[in-house]
Nucleic acid binder design. Structure first.
Lengths: 173, 173
DNA sequence: CCTCAAACGGACTACCGAGTCCGCTTACAG
DNA sequence: CTGTAAGCGGACTCGGTAGTCCGTTTGAGG
């Protein structure tokens, strides 16, 4: 069996869900206590599974990234590289903005988690679009995500689509 | 005269300078103690002049904004509205990036300080450029600064000029 | 000089959040 | 059913910061 008692596995799940919700709402400043309360466990339980707050944050992001990866794969399947890129950017933004605080968490974490898989897929999408001439060449693939994320964070509540448009237009050749 | 003893005035000055330096380096999370230490005063002295940390931060930003205002006035003097805008944006960014943490402070403070004067000048510059057709019309004047600031914050140390270029290109009609 | 209010500065309080510890509870194997 | 190790959770420690208070120092007017 999974080497984990049933209640332990259940709590692990609950904590991850609660953490996602709380980090999404409050960004990296969310407190472990609040997460534990929402999960309905003592905060000692949280720390047993995730020795530090950052570990927990990584885990949340990791799970979130998995969803984005599948979008990225779809995009790579398309045969219009430029449209694939812009479509993917919008879709990913759409998904990400359901959990705005996570952007700040990703920024906070810096390099650490950022699933290598997504990193790679993203690079492919960007450089493919650049080769096809739909995307300016003087940006590194690794610049694109931070730029977009920054605009999304800065945008006032209802306005992020407009902000995104500006940045995406700026990225066109 | 200023109704303020000589040493008081001198310390006020020192605190403001130290605060500028520390906030510029560490953003809004800088601690009052560090500022007081750098200023060479006890932290009680800091609190006497600036009852809360935010008050101090506002004061620092206020002073910083004054410098930007003079750039804005120059820009309004130019008779090429579009170039005035883009030139001003670059100049202000250049100035602002000598004190990167202040961007985060401005974001942190939200509406509160934001000198009304600069607000007004900025609006004029933007809408003048829009009327002249050099700037896309689907952005509000109040969107421009946050967008640019976001890009500057997100940029890795040496790279902010490239990030700025992307955003500015996105703002062109 | 001398006085004294203004100004100083550091000890102190209050609070908050991360991370530890340990006595109690409970899943589950035998 | 029972023994026991895995798991639980809250009390506790520790560190760090905003803001207060008050005994001491000092600038400046008379």
């Amino acid at each position: 069996m999974t080497e984990l008692r049933a209640d332990a596995r259940r709590n692990h799940e609950r904590v991850l869900d609660a953490a996602t919700e709380v980090f999404a709402a409050s960004g990296p400043d969310a407190s472990i206590d609040e997460i534990a309360r929402l999960a309905g466990v003592g905060h000692g339980t949280v720390f047993r599974r995730f020795p530090t707050k950052d570990d927990l944050m990584y885990a949340v992001i990791e799970r979130h990234v998995a969803q984005i990866c599948s979008l990225a794969e779809e995009a790579l399947a398309s045969d219009d590289p430029a449209e694939a890129f812009f479509g993917f950017a919008r879709a990913a933004a759409e998904l990400g903005m359901t959990t705005p605080g996570l952007h700040k968490c990703i920024v906070h974490c810096g390099e650490k988690p950022r699933g290598a898989e997504l990193e790679e897929l993203g690079t492919k999408i960007v450089s493919r679009a650049q080769r096809a001439g739909g995307l300016r060449r003087d940006v590194e693939p690794s610049d694109v995500a931070p730029l977009i994320r920054a605009a999304l964070i800065a945008a006032p509540p209802g306005q992020w689509r407009r902000y995104l448009d500006v940045v995406l237009d700026g990225l066109r050749s």
